[in-house]
Amino acid sequence: MSKVVTFGEVMLRLATPDRLRFGQAGSFTATFGGGEANVAVSLANYGLPVEFVTRVPKNDIADSCLRELRKYGVGTSHVVYGGERLGIYFLETGAVARPSKVVYDRAHSSVSEIAPGMVDWEKALQDASWFHWTGITPAISQGAADACLEAIRTANRLGIPVSTDLNYRKNLWKYGKTAAEVMPALVEGCDLILGNEEDAEKVFGIKPEGFDAASTGGRVDGARFESVCRQLTARFPRAKRVVITLRGAVNADHNTWSGVLWNGRELLQAPTYDITDIVDRVGGGDSFMGGLIYGLLAYGDDRRALNFAVAASALKHTIYGDFNLVTVAEVENLMKGDGSGRVVR
């Protein structure tokens, strides 16, 4: 069975309850999450063996986090210990015209102080069929970027496919380097590149002509992104697939959701889902990535993998927390057109 390895930071998530604003909240709901950990949980739920690699402190909070990951079937045997704190992010969930807000508290976290040589990547990637990372990791620190590059080059040498979610976060690039300076060397080693409608522009200056994310009216034309995909594959020829998620924001509670995949021959577009009454959109892109990796490994068909990814992510918007806790059967049921939400008895 295909084994997937992911690498990145996992954090304590503290969210205001009942959509309260930060200034109103007298308590926070504590869970855990982080891009690559979220992908790992998705894949474990789909029945794939998966290992999550990170660096955490040796304390009770980190132990609770790792137990939570193991509860969902994620392997943690290659996690390394060191440093003094787990990163934290605070979430204020928006409603209607009020957007959600995230405040990071992750300076000097254990993984931000990671360095090459701390992880034995030969062992961590042994028997792996896939390696995944996101652009959040190299944004944390130079050490995290260097360790990520070390992992990518090891995977390349071992012949393991590598995927990335560009995941540009402007508030994280604070250590003196820009994404444009750091990301190209890492993306050069990737076989699959995922981004949203803005990532390629923010990181590489590549954007679709005539597209304005603020004026989509909740509908995003996937055909406009073929030029973006072509430009990315021209710049990073190792990448055989480029995938763009398409989010049309009507408001904080109502989005449309789809995606396109360019495989060098044709641009495939998935069905568009109309997602109303969103429960939690955090981790939506990660749930897409988890679904895409599973679909490519399980089906070996680009179109079916893309459709699985979009359906899986549409379901994630109905689930509280970072993790997408759905099964293959549930995703495939939605792919067949059953979005009624009727009680299953």
Rank of each mutant, 00 (worst) to 15 (best):
F90R: 08
G47Q: 03
T178I: 07
Y104P: 08
A44P: 03
L297Y: 11
G33W: 04
Y175D: 14
G300Q: 01
N324M: 12
M11L: 14
R169K: 08
G283Y: 04
L149G: 09
F7D: 06
L158E: 12
K123W: 05
H78G: 11
V162R: 01
A115Y: 13
L292M: 15
D277H: 14
V242L: 07
I293Y: 12
E51C: 09
R21L: 14
V103N: 03
R303N: 08
C65Y: 04
F236L: 07
G83I: 07
L267V: 02
K240H: 14
L325E: 10
G264H: 05
D338V: 03
W173A: 10
C229E: 05
P237L: 06
I244P: 00
E9V: 02
I140W: 03
N59L: 04
R265I: 03
P271M: 06
A312F: 02
Y46W: 12
G176R: 05
D18I: 03
K174D: 15
G339Q: 05
L48W: 09
V162E: 05
R345P: 13
G26M: 12
F236Y: 08
Y299E: 11
G321V: 04
L20T: 06
E201G: 13
E226I: 13
Y294E: 12
G47S: 00
G339V: 09
A180T: 11
T54Q: 04
L268R: 06
L149T: 03
G47N: 06
A239M: 02
S27H: 11
S27R: 13
A147W: 01
F32Q: 04
L297F: 12
K101M: 14
R224F: 12
R342V: 13
L334W: 10
G259D: 13
K316I: 04
S110I: 10
G341D: 02
A239Q: 06
R19W: 02
V111E: 06
T54H: 01
A329Q: 15
A214R: 14
D191S: 10
P17T: 07
V74L: 08
V331K: 05
F236P: 03
V343F: 15
G47K: 03
L66P: 00
S163R: 06
Q269V: 13
G222K: 08
I160Y: 01
L86Q: 07
G295V: 01
V119S: 05
V102N: 09
A15C: 05
R304H: 01
R19K: 09
D127V: 09
T216N: 00
R241N: 05
A107Y: 11
E68K: 12
P161E: 01
E188G: 11
A124R: 12
L125M: 08
D60N: 14
K240W: 03
R98A: 10
E84A: 14
P184Y: 09
G73T: 00
E36C: 08
M11C: 00
M289E: 15
R21W: 08
A147L: 10
W130I: 07
I275Y: 01
D277W: 02
G33P: 02
A213T: 07
G321D: 06
Q231N: 11
Q126W: 12
V187L: 08
P49I: 02
G284T: 01
H254E: 07
V79N: 09
T154F: 02
G83H: 00
L194G: 04
L172H: 02
I114H: 05
G143K: 03
F32C: 06
G94V: 05
L261S: 11
R169G: 12
H78C: 14
H317I: 07
T256Y: 08
A62R: 01
R238D: 00
